[in-house]
Design a protein around this nucleic acid. Structure first.
Lengths: 193, 193, 193, 193
DNA sequence: TATGAATGAGACTTCATTCAT
DNA sequence: TATGAATGAAGTCTCATTCAT
């Protein structure tokens, strides 16, 4: 019982943190507000996280994990390349649509000092394994250009993120046809012609 | 001499602000630190900017302007489309190389509340007029896909930004050939096939 | 012990505030100085009062309550009118003598914006119920002039306040006979002749 | 010409100060706002007043002088006592009606540290010479009670001030009859019976 | 004499963190 | 282990005053 309670408290705090960040950004997150939202005392937070920076690291990791799961949802290695690509692209896009806060704060998460810690980066790498496998396989088959995975990603999926963010912020509207055209265009960027 | 002392001081403050933001992000920018870095008293800042928010607006505008100038440097409308595209792409890339701070914090600037003020957005639109003309002309000639300029930009130049940032952060190394390949790849994204 | 620690701290702060205001007026009251005088940290004040304005409201209320209690001390409705009047008049006078700070700053308290809030005024009305009853009864009996209570008060007790203040500030000296004469004179103002 | 200009500037500053104080109280008076309102540079104020405190002293004196003039307006020593009394009482009352700011800020002026400087007090004494003569004459004739002038004033004219202030602040309404009754009542306070 | 840009101390307030309970 | 009152450094911003022009 008690061991579960601990885990729950930790999760409670992380969940509350994510919620508050989504609502009011990082500047809006104070430890007292967090304590209140999580339903614990301020001092309790410090039993699970050494300090605010550590807490933020963990929040970021949690969010990355959720994004990774969402992006790779429904994708399996035996699907055709193009189908996998479209699926992940749309997963990213829909993530933005259904969960604007998360995506719109992604840049905030990326701006955090911890984002560059080697440890954190490796973890994220692992989480996006499916993406890596897609690129590796595509290059092996000669479908994709022989470029570093990071670059292929920057040319394709990052466009999805960028476009989704601008879309969420209301820079423009996209109908289904235009969305499809954007997917095809980003596909053009990484395939050989 | 005396007539542009004011202007100088304003510039001093803006330059110092940009430097500090580049070094430690927005959270790291306090008015006291800024005053010290700019070599003025804290109160002096308030002669030129009504409050911190206004200051940040202006920093953002200055950075946007610098980026716009740098991106469009050397580009003229009578060059061939491809040459213009490569030039701007490389301008972005080199901007990141020579001025890591500016580019690496671009996302932070975009997260600022003011980034969505209509006024600010229109100004940025004007600044990137050359980019808009490139896309317009390319679509007219049937070279580019018939997509919204914002989307074409997201598919091509934003990739440059993304790749340059990751490169600057040391995620990977790129030799000249790989760089050239990346440019060609992003070009593939926007042209008709 | 622990249950009334909070109350104590609140009282500490209010008492310190009253003292500092008495010493140096409202302009002299800074939150830092108050914290020091109260023996707490600056931030602690904000656990008990949302901001300076709220603090000042509460100080005012406390002072009003103390004055009301002191003024009406020992007075009961079954005493003769004149005796009640003299008692209250002297209570005011003695309050000034024993507690110069409080009385000498009464005008300052009255200048506070909160002094005109309906809520606050009603409270004060209740506190001076004894005074109101005195005037009501006196008018009923035909002893007092048929004037509004506020006006009767302005003609009689306010004179006590005014004279006590000037006396406390050293404008003049008053022996017991003169004091008695002043009471009788103010009594003359409100009775029918 | 130049000597007049100096005087003008000084007056300009004092007038602007009074206006701003009437509008927003003492807390609202900053030297920069004052400079702007007076149409001079901030530094200029310091050519005429050694510091803010000195400036406030002078403002207070000016206001006292204006009040003294207003109070004694139309009163001459050859009028009957009662007429003089009524005239001055009404002068005070009307001053409050026509110039609420001045009267309502009187308490603020009285709270100023300088209000107790001997120098200032003597000056005010002189200004209210007419009042002093009224009381002296009245006592000589046996009409007034043989009390100190300060006390007679506290029993009579101060009531006028108090009532006028509360009236101006909206504590109650007074018609002409009630006003007349109040004057008579305060007269009762100081005459022998 | 007049200016007004510059100063920097100090105002109010927030908040990450600690520690006695 | 959990609490939450207390802390005090640091934040943004104001303003009386000075001084080079």
């Amino acid at each position: 019982m008690s061991s579960n309670t601990n885990i729950d408290k930790r999760e409670q705090i992380l969940a509350a943190a994510e919620k508050l960040i989504a609502e009011s950004g990082f500047q809006g997150l104070s430890m007292q507000k967090l304590a209140k939202e999580a339903g614990v005392a301020a001092g309790t937070i410090y039993r699970y996280f050494s300090d605010k920076e550590h807490l933020l690291d963990e929040v970021r990791l949690m969010v990355s994990r959720r994004i990774a799961d969402a992006v790779q949802a429904g994708v399996s290695d035996d699907m055709p390349l193009k189908q996998r690509y479209r699926m992940m692209w749309l997963n990213i896009w829909n993530l933005a649509a259904s969960n604007i806060d998360t995506i719109s704060n992604r840049v905030q998460y990326e701006s955090l000092p911890c984002a560059n810690k080697r440890n954190t980066r490796e973890l994220e790498r692992e989480m996006f394994a499916q993406v890596d496998r897609l690129f590796a396989e595509g290059k092996e088959q000669g479908v994709f250009k022989p470029l570093d995975n990071e670059i292929l990603s920057g040319l394709s999926f990052e466009a999805s993120v960028t476009l989704a963010r601008k879309h969420a912020l209301g820079f423009y509207q996209l109908d289904d046809d235009a969305l499809d055209a954007a997917i095809e265009a980003s596909w053009d960027a990484i395939i050989t012609h």
